[in-house]
């Protein structure tokens, strides 16, 4: 499954389409081989009666999966947004620290976000969050903030500003890791595949009874089933495959941090 969800959109569509066509071809071959004229007529009539039910079942199952997976993708994007927002708060909070401390915190923050930008998605795609370079740099960021927070010379508001923001960053990252560990519900997906195959078989039976001209309708259904299943796979992994969570907000924040935009004593020309 991980292999399928890692494919890019074109490869995924072509592969699923090819598989669906092969399965459809096999069904069509079996129907022509084992169903004679009168039986075909009878089976066609029966199949026509089940078309709506099977179509609805397939639509409900895939609709549910698409909705659920897309929600996960959107939630993950929102979590990344929260992480960026917390990181941004941390950067702003660090400007109230003595300059040397503020730079230490911002440097560690930029290093962490830089590592997220470069290596976190790949690590999460393989469900290996601990292998992400961001794991170490987050630890260093936590340590830097914790060290600063113990300083007697800081006011309570300054300490709570940085510690509150770092909690937000850590929590958001933890949520990302949890989501990355989640898999597409295999049973539900398998049920959708079975419903799709049944729908295709049904459509072929109806087409076989109605004649070759109606084969185009069956082809349409085959395409819809293939694209539906491909869509589910495409959006089911937020950190790999064609529909990934956008890393651009993190990238932008890294650039802002490294150019000194969060240092109130740097004039950006």
């Amino acid at each position: 499954m991980a292999l399928l969800t890692s494919l890019d959109s074109w490869a995924l569509v072509v592969l699923i389409l090819a598989l669906t066509l092969i399965v459809s071809g096999a069904i069509a071959f079996a129907l022509s081989r084992f169903l004679g004229g009168p039986e075909r007529e009878k089976a066609g009539n029966t199949a026509a009666a089940y078309m709506t039910a099977l179509g609805s079942l397939f639509a409900i199952l895939t609709g549910f999966l698409i909705n659920s997976e897309y929600s996960t993708l959107r939630d993950t994007q929102r979590i990344v947004g929260q992480e960026v927002s917390s990181a941004s708060r941390l950067a702003y909070a660090s400007t109230s620290l003595p300059s040397a401390d503020g730079e230490v915190v911002q440097d560690a923050l930029a290093a962490y976000l830089g590592d997220v930008r470069v290596g976190e998605w790949q690590a999460l795609a393989q469900d290996a969050a601990t292998k992400s370079p961001a794991t170490d740099s987050l630890r260093q960021l936590e340590r830097a903030v914790a060290t600063v927070a113990t300083r007697d010379y800081l006011k309570d508001a300054e300490v709570s500003g940085v510690t509150g923001a770092i909690e937000g960053v850590t929590a958001a990252r933890r949520q990302r890791v949890v989501i990355a560990a989640q898999e597409l519900p295999i049973a539900l997906f398998a049920l959708s595949v079975i419903a799709g195959v049944a729908l295709v078989a049904n459509a072929l039976l109806v087409a076989a009874r109605a004649g070759p001209k109606y084969g185009l309708v069956a082809l349409g259904i085959i395409l819809v089933v293939a694209l539906d299943l491909a869509a589910i796979l495409a959006i089911s992994a937020p950190f790999r495959g064609p529909f990934q969570v956008d890393v651009a907000p993190i990238s932008q924040l890294v650039d802002e941090l490294t150019s000194g935009q969060y240092l109130d004593w740097v004039t950006i020309r």
Binding site: P98, S99, A100, G260, W265, V266, T267, I268, R269
Partner: peptide, 9 residues
């Protein structure tokens, strides 16, 4: 030259 108002020791 971008440094403006750095709070040094």
């Amino acid at each position: 030259l971008d440094v403006q108002g750095y709070r040094g020791i």
